[in-house]
Design a protein around this nucleic acid. Sequence first.
DNA 1: ACTCAAGTGGGGAAGAGTGGGGAGAAGTGG
DNA 2: CCACTTCTCCCCACTCTTCCCCACTTGAGT
Lengths: 145, 145
Amino acid sequence: MSGANFVGEYLHTLDAKGRIALPAKFRETLGPKFIVARGLDKCLFVYPPEEWDQVMEKLKTIPISSKDARHFTRYFLSGATEAEPDKQGRVVIPQNLRDYAGLNKDVFILGVGSRIEIWDKDAWEETKLGLEAEFSVLAESVAGI
Amino acid sequence: MSGANFVGEYLHTLDAKGRIALPAKFRETLGPKFIVARGLDKCLFVYPPEEWDQVMEKLKTIPISSKDARHFTRYFLSGATEAEPDKQGRVVIPQNLRDYAGLNKDVFILGVGSRIEIWDKDAWEETKLGLEAEFSVLAESVAGI
DNA sequence: ACTCAAGTGGGGAAGAGTGGGGAGAAGTGG
DNA sequence: CCACTTCTCCCCACTCTTCCCCACTTGAGT
């Protein structure tokens, strides 16, 4: 099996300087440098370098001649940041990413297998409510569980 | 892994003398000398020398017999400039390029993988609005991320 | 109860971005 | 050919942000 296996749910805070402390359990796996980018469903994805390289490789195969592709690449990459945590294990989340995910003071940090996700507290709680109800239904539609 | 990997979105200003300060994060990768050219979608492309060479290689493979190709090459290359930043990391954007991209005082500078793009603030914000809505759709169709 | 690690807050130095003055080069007219 | 104007570029100075480090708090483990 390749890659990381992040699990868990952590409630942390985005401080006045725009920093978030990553859960200690994730730090070693993440390494000293990683990428934060816009994710699906209005949250942020945190990629370890190896995962990110794979994404970049894929992007590079897209022809520049298609307008949709150009725009997608633009949007996706301009919304990404290379992040290095400080000695306390915190990273600064740029304004544009905070806006995208609607982050306020309280944020959830989720381990989701190969990646980590950062959610606004309220947004995640609401999403989670919906998921609890559908959980068993979803399980069936996701093949082979 | 080959090539540059620019990411991020920066809001800078075009001053009265036509200069733009490049984001500090991009400077090292760009090197002391690089190319600014007309880009697709009314923005400017900035390439480090190595990436520019690759673009040139690609252009050379285009058959000269196609009129569209000749025009494209002509237009693209005639608008290109070699730029050297001053000690503060700023470059002068020639008038013709400023006109092309419709640059006013406020500009966005985007990291888009192998190149950097310079956009007029309003133009990019408008473009971005449209993209946010399509993001999840494009993500699946383009890259399967 | 004590110790240690994790998370949080904040002060201060260093660096990045911006504006503008002035010397030198280039272009123009006499 | 020279004098004048204009534009470019180099450098200095100010401000604001970023990042680096120190210190407090809380909670878990021994």
